[in-house]
Design a protein around this nucleic acid. Structure first.
Lengths: 181, 181, 181, 181
DNA sequence: TCTTAAACGAGACGGTACGTCAAGTCTTCGC
DNA sequence: GCGAAGACTTGACGTACCGTCTCGTTTAAGA
């Protein structure tokens, strides 16, 4: 396995490149160069750019929504917090560029898509499930998808993110649907 | 500008390559080679891969939902038809590969994203708006987004597309929300 | 046949390009563009760059040494005048660039070399022959070559041209050889 | 820098291409292809065709006149040997094609001309200087130029090379001039 | 004067080569 | 003998010219 100093340098290089030059700059060549290591050293530990991205994301506290959530708030407030956290995460550097680069690869590589879902998406959705289930929702999966879909959809198509007001309204609506069942 | 036979050959080449080798094979070099034209001929008419993709998509009847829609059906049925059409379009070759390639570029090129929204997304949303507005919906934009978001979200993250039953349920739910207002 | 105005425009374009951007800029594409004519018009009258160069050179008084020669001077002075004229011609724009471009093509195209010898070199040598023959030289061809060779040699290898003093000395030496015979 | 096997393959490719298809075939693309190496490998070690040519020439015993010179012969014979060797070198493949290609570039690229003079011409002239100086010539540079100029002049203009008889006579004449001083 | 054929500008076309960049593999050498 | 450095093959990038080939449009006769 690679030395921990090598790993740290790679992570730092990825974050720097993402923040400075955007998602396009994230190439194996560029990362190795910026980290000051040989290309083979990079390939020895990670098979390609997406693997490095996952590592960098997970290593840098990619636990969205876990911070500052009003654990004691009511159901709606907790969901609002989760969505606000997700919205902020995907629009703040260097996470924004990393996720953007990942999103591009997801489109052309099914295995990356699968890994994204298991390592990043599902943990995030699980939080929403938990809140919904705690509130007695009959179909937490469906409700969670309804909650998250517009957020992801807008980010994916580079539409302006939902404002806080829109998010509040959105949570309210989805909860109304759940109650209706 | 370009001769119509040239354009036709380029479109054919794009569709063939997309169907045969997937989104990754869509390079300017490959398209020119498959179409049997010079690279400069390609670059003279299209600045890059995304431009060729837009042209090929729009030229091949990219008017989703317009075919077979039950224009005389009731509101819910019309919306179901639109969503089913959209779902099928994004999962059927060669459209699937072309859109997938486009989705990848959208992630790293804001101008492509803008062009996608204007030339492909908005016409599609407009159809939904029209149906909703005809039904007296107070907020057709919001409802349309709620309808489309899960479809795009699943496609984008390569989750299995919604089944017809799920789509029917989804339309029903969103309409219930609209009525609730 | 080409219209005279076309020919004139081509000649003008060649001289301008040669003077402004050097020998490298002399391409069929560039000449047509600068002359404001179609490429086919150019190719209709000239098969390639060298042909245009010959035409432009011959049309612009490429009769080196004919001007200002002291026709009544003695033998040595007349030869000096011829060599000085040749030296100046090959180092003054736009002739310098045209000849330089021609020299490049001569290296890779035997037919251009032949045409150069008959249309440009031999007339020039003939002048030297005439003077030498008038002076009773027994081998005017050999003497002419001895006279011209260092001038061409230096120009070809981009060495500094002979100074007037060196030229005078050179003529003197060659004449001494001729007399020696 | 480059691996020695790479360099060897490049040199071989250059000689083969020059001998088979003449100076025109010497392109970076063609050399890389024939050598079975990547273009980037070629560009990493040589900035362009002329650099490759210099290397190939210098690597293949480009020490003209050094072989078979009658070191113990008298002055005239040594000079004749040098000139004969030079004449043969420039008219024998594959050197002929390499030098021809170089000659073309010299016409349009001053830096190549400079490098040619330093790396190929001056060593050759130095040999002539040495012989002349050993013979007590008062102006070895001028005499050397006088000796070489007709040889280069004829080669450059693609005139038939001097016959051995002409060379002998030429050496005799130049020596007579030197003695005259 | 009308017409008709040429010469024309414009530029699309299939190609070849340019020089650069990144991918992923393989080699060399120092610690 | 492991790992950093970097040379390697491959192939796409976008550009410049090449020489050929239509397109309509002048232009300059001859009828």
């Amino acid at each position: 396995m690679a030395r921990s100093s090598t790993i740290a340098r790679v992570h730092a290089a990825v974050l720097e490149l993402a923040a400075e030059h955007g998602p396009t700059s994230l190439t194996m060549e560029g990362i190795a160069s910026r980290a000051g290591i040989g290309k083979q050293t990079l390939y020895r530990s990670w098979p390609g750019v997406p693997a490095v991205l996952f590592d960098a994301l997970l290593a840098h506290g990619d636990a969205p929504g876990s911070d500052g959530a009003r654990a004691d708030g009511d159901l709606a407030h907790q969901l609002e917090d989760l969505l606000v956290a997700a919205t902020e995460e995907i629009s703040t550097e260097p996470h924004a560029s990393l996720l953007r680069a990942l999103a591009a690869v997801i489109q052309t590589d099914e295995s990356v898509a699968r890994e994204y879902r298991t390592r990043l998406l599902e943990p995030q959705l699980a939080q929403v499930h938990d809140v919904l289930r705690a509130a007695g929702s009959s179909e937490p999966e469906r409700a969670a998808e309804l909650l998250m879909a517009p957020v992801v959809y807008r980010w994916f198509l580079r539409l302006p993110p939902m404002t806080t007001e829109q998010l509040v309204r959105h949570v309210e609506d989805v909860l109304a649907l759940t109650d209706r069942d």
